[in-house]
Simulated scan of single mutants.
Amino acid sequence: MANKHTTRPITTGTSVVGLVYDGGVLLAADTLLSYGSMAKSFNTPRMVSIADRVLLGASGEYSDFQEIVSRVEALALAETTQSMESVYDERTLSAKSLWNYLRAVMYQKRSKMNPFWNDLVVAGFENDAPFLGVIDKLGTTLQENLVATGFGGYLAMPLLREKWRPDLSEGEARALLEDCMKVLFYRDCRASARIQLAKVTKDTCIISEPYELDHSNGWNAPSMQRAVGDLDGDGGW
């Protein structure tokens, strides 16, 4: 049987951005997949719901993400089956357990020189407290109130650090994530204005349908208008 190696990412998705707010965790990601520099698919989700109140999102190679999801779903099914077979054992796959499992998976793959080319975000609830963690393709992990993968680490994190506070309401958290996704759309040539939001609380886990950001104000900003005006004048263009 031939060896199968992903030597470099080919069909990729860009940033996933997440934050903890007062009452839950919110994630955001666009739905664009790029084939190199070409936009291949405009409506492909990169966030999934796993087990009970656990979210998993990913940037990077999409085929590797599909393989990770199939492994995680098999693990969640095994946990559920074991729990059903035992009267005394009510186990479900928690967010922190999934985070630790994926850390081991990513580390094992990179140790065999055949990594999954993904950065993963795990969100959920752990002991009635919100949980948010990230794992990179080397198996390095981070648990934090604010996370961003891909170009979001450079473009979205400064905005998150400036405006985040622990008592953010759900509406404020959503507005902040949408601002981050707009910045990524303006600055990251692999990002799209078509996004999804995902929310996990004590009681629910929801992934929204894809929708378009209202990004017209960015192009109508005074600085952009001056730049366009210079095209017809002698402003250095």
Score class of each variant (00 low, 15 high):
residue 157 M to P: 07
residue 204 T to E: 15
residue 106 M to C: 12
residue 236 G to Y: 00
residue 97 S to V: 08
residue 189 C to Q: 11
residue 155 L to G: 05
residue 60 G to K: 01
residue 206 I to W: 10
residue 89 D to M: 13
residue 208 S to D: 15
residue 37 S to R: 09
residue 157 M to V: 13
residue 141 T to Y: 06
residue 229 G to N: 13
residue 125 F to E: 08
residue 177 L to R: 02
residue 204 T to I: 13
residue 105 V to T: 11
residue 174 R to F: 02
residue 167 D to M: 11
residue 232 D to E: 10
residue 185 F to Y: 11
residue 26 L to W: 05
residue 221 A to C: 14
residue 27 L to R: 00
residue 156 A to F: 01
residue 211 Y to P: 00
residue 91 R to G: 08
residue 229 G to R: 12
residue 193 A to E: 14
residue 124 G to R: 06
residue 237 W to P: 00
residue 230 D to E: 14
residue 140 T to D: 15
residue 52 D to F: 02
residue 143 Q to I: 11
residue 30 D to Q: 13
residue 188 D to F: 02
residue 49 S to W: 03
residue 56 L to H: 03
residue 207 I to G: 07
residue 102 L to M: 13
residue 29 A to I: 01
residue 132 L to V: 11
residue 166 P to M: 06
residue 137 K to Y: 14
residue 233 G to L: 10
residue 215 H to L: 15
residue 123 A to K: 10
residue 158 P to V: 05
residue 72 V to M: 03
residue 185 F to K: 05
residue 118 N to P: 08
residue 145 N to A: 14
residue 106 M to I: 05
residue 57 G to E: 03
residue 188 D to M: 03
residue 171 G to W: 06
residue 153 G to E: 07
residue 50 I to S: 08
residue 95 A to L: 03
residue 163 K to Q: 09
residue 226 R to W: 12
residue 186 Y to F: 11
residue 179 D to S: 10
residue 28 A to D: 02
residue 132 L to C: 07
residue 98 L to F: 03
residue 69 V to D: 03
residue 22 D to G: 12
residue 27 L to W: 00
residue 76 A to C: 07
residue 200 V to D: 04
residue 88 Y to F: 15
residue 85 E to L: 15
residue 41 S to L: 14
residue 120 L to Y: 03
residue 168 L to Q: 09
residue 196 Q to L: 04
residue 210 P to A: 07
residue 128 D to F: 11
residue 212 E to K: 14
residue 132 L to G: 07
residue 44 T to S: 12
residue 183 V to P: 00
residue 18 G to Q: 07
residue 194 R to T: 14
residue 115 P to S: 00
residue 111 S to N: 14
residue 122 V to H: 00
residue 105 V to K: 06
residue 197 L to N: 03
residue 232 D to A: 11
residue 198 A to M: 01
residue 126 E to W: 07
residue 177 L to A: 04
residue 82 Q to P: 01
residue 95 A to C: 05
residue 38 M to E: 09
residue 95 A to M: 04
residue 173 A to V: 03
residue 159 L to S: 09
residue 90 E to T: 10
residue 150 G to T: 04
residue 221 A to G: 13
residue 149 T to H: 08
residue 142 L to G: 04
residue 90 E to K: 12
residue 123 A to H: 07
residue 67 E to W: 13
residue 101 Y to W: 13
residue 39 A to I: 08
residue 80 T to E: 11
residue 102 L to Q: 01
residue 151 F to N: 14
residue 141 T to L: 07
residue 210 P to C: 03
residue 36 G to H: 04
residue 51 A to K: 03
residue 213 L to F: 06
residue 45 P to K: 11
residue 12 T to I: 09
residue 55 L to N: 05
residue 194 R to N: 15
residue 159 L to T: 12
residue 2 A to Q: 12
residue 106 M to R: 02
residue 56 L to M: 14
residue 58 A to E: 01
residue 114 N to V: 05
residue 158 P to H: 06
residue 33 L to Y: 05
residue 221 A to H: 15
residue 210 P to K: 01
residue 232 D to F: 12
residue 2 A to Y: 12
residue 127 N to P: 01
residue 66 Q to K: 15
residue 146 L to Q: 08
residue 47 M to Q: 04
residue 230 D to C: 12
residue 98 L to V: 06
residue 190 R to W: 12
residue 38 M to H: 09
residue 59 S to K: 02
